[in-house]
Amino acid sequence: MTVPEQRRSPDAALALRGLVKQFEAKVAVAGIDLDVPAGSFFGLLGPNGAGKTTTLSMAVGLLRPDLGQARILGYDVWADPIAAKSRIGVLPDGVRLFDRLTGTELLAYQGLLRGMDPTVVDRRSVELMDVLQLGAGNRTLVVDYSAGMKKKIGLACALLHAPRLLVLDEPFEAVDPVSAALIRGILQRYVTGGGTVVFSSHVMTVVERLCSHVAIMADGRIRVRGTLDEVRGDRSLEDVFVEVVGGRTATGSELSWL
């Protein structure tokens, strides 16, 4: 099943080459090359509209790129989708879950959809519901969950089949501090165990605490990349981010009517 020459860059868990995506008149992603080393905790940063979600969607096979390639653990996402997709767990942002199922039903659905053994699905689902404090006996439909609970059940869906690469789009958005700490702990243990995490965020403190590597995107391009220390230098990550993205700073004279 494994063709040796398919695995060109075994060191990279995720390798993007020249990804381009254009929506009508707007270029969302203008040519991205990126290597995520295996075993790294990779933060993809950028302001709103920088193209983070578009990039990650193309990387995991949710959105077909106009140009370019995406490889997951050496498998081409668009040429060999089954092999690539079976090795990743994805938490998309701005996408609904099958929210008319209960949490446990949703996990069972995900597990069987991934071709897992039903007994394993049962065992892991109950454990995940318990660990993520969603309540193993909880029969509430996901549509009635709070925003934070939805993130947690989405994360549980991504973890269920124990993938070697996790791609998480804004995993900490709308999550309360207690749950965020829980999620951080789970992800850190996952990386320690040899997994790779790629996640997008614009919360600098979270990124500084977790990531070994970062890349900063703006206007559909990667502006800076490297290990956290390389990118940060002796400044704070936030200063670097604002400088790279080129934001506007308040002078105090605008919005005087407020």
């Binding site: 209960t102 069972a108 597990g111 049962d122 006996g137 909880n138 439909l141």
Partner: peptide
């Protein structure tokens, strides 16, 4: 939100009816 009684059945059994295959 609907109040549903906690189920004793396993997650897979909750989702998949008895007569369907577990796949």
């Amino acid at each position: 939100s609907r109040e549903r009684a906690a189920s004793q059945r396993t997650p897979v059994d909750q989702l998949v009816p008895r007569w369907l295959p577990r796949n």
